[in-house]
Design a protein around this nucleic acid. Structure first.
Lengths: 156, 156
DNA sequence: CATAATTAAATTGTGCGCAATAGGATTTTG
DNA sequence: CAAAATCCTATTGCGCACAATTTAATTATG
């Protein structure tokens, strides 16, 4: 009954060991947990985070929204068209620079913020199943992880 | 200069505050970081985790794979067909229960495990930008989060 | 044992995510 | 100021995710 010696290879490819899979899996779990709440607003999660960006500051270009969410026009263009069709936003070419499209909230889009405050926000703490401090600490750690990953992609 | 009193509402919908967005964002960052590594194996990330499941135990049904990855047949059926076309796996109906499809690694699929060990595994630690202990602790926390979210979905 | 209920996988339809490309508008440069 | 380079958005194509439905096989029930 000596010390257990194990080839590191044996564990490296195990699914449960992987931080990456844990994050991948948690992201999907979040989506599933949010879905019934967001259904009541008629929004998907990606649409919802675009709305959050606009609730923070109304009237932003596709580029600005994309920078905050790490999404490109290939994702945002069709998504914004769907938000427009839902009556949540308007899209207008910038007068001074016609390359840019400015995205603005409609009255309905602004009003939806209150629905989010009432229906979504209170449910989150309950979903996550831990205190606010734990949640905040974890969030900061995950953000640090994301930052490290972004750096690794660009500087190698 | 009294104590700063703030409506809780003001912060609740801020993007940077959200654990959910942090996780969503980190998952995409992981994907982007993995992509160049996985390209050398000719696999996408979801295909890669299916391969990991099969490397742990060869010959599993679609159902079993789906249970481990939280994916349904709507996702797995076409993904597995692509893995089959790549020559990584075979799909055969179970003789005893013809409803089930057993997924097995080909020789190429088995050989790809070594490529993963050589090319993917060593790069991960570097990507994440922190020590093994930190990484493991974080993984366990994220798994706990996922478990809490899963529970919240089913028991309300 | 026939019928109903359940199960496994595949299919259909919608919405991301992202690479690659294209079409205009603006800016830079020679 | 004309040509080249850059910038912003939209489009195309592919591969997930997932809800909803379908098909076929198996099991449970009257």
């Amino acid at each position: 009954m000596g010390i257990k010696v194990m080839k590191p290879e044996e564990n490296v490819l195990k699914l449960e060991q992987q931080l990456c899979f844990a994050v991948y899996s948690a992201a999907h779990a979040f989506n599933r947990a949010y879905k019934p709440l967001l259904d009541s607003l008629g929004l998907t999660y990606p649409q919802y985070i675009v709305m959050m960006v606009l609730w923070e500051r109304n009237g932003q270009t596709v580029k600005e929204i994309g920078a905050k969410l790490d999404l490109d026009s290939g994702t945002l263009s069709p998504l914004l068209k769907r938000l427009e069709k839902l009556g949540m936003i308007t899209r207008t070419r910038d007068e001074n620079d016609e390359r840019q499209v400015v995205v603005s909230l409609t009255e309905q889009g602004k009003a939806t913020r209150r629905l989010a405050l009432d229906k979504i926000a209170p449910a989150i703490g309950h979903l996550v199943g831990c205190g606010v401090d734990d949640m905040n600490e974890m969030r900061d750690r995950v953000i640090k992880l994301k930052t490290a990953l972004d750096g690794a992609v660009n500087h190698d």
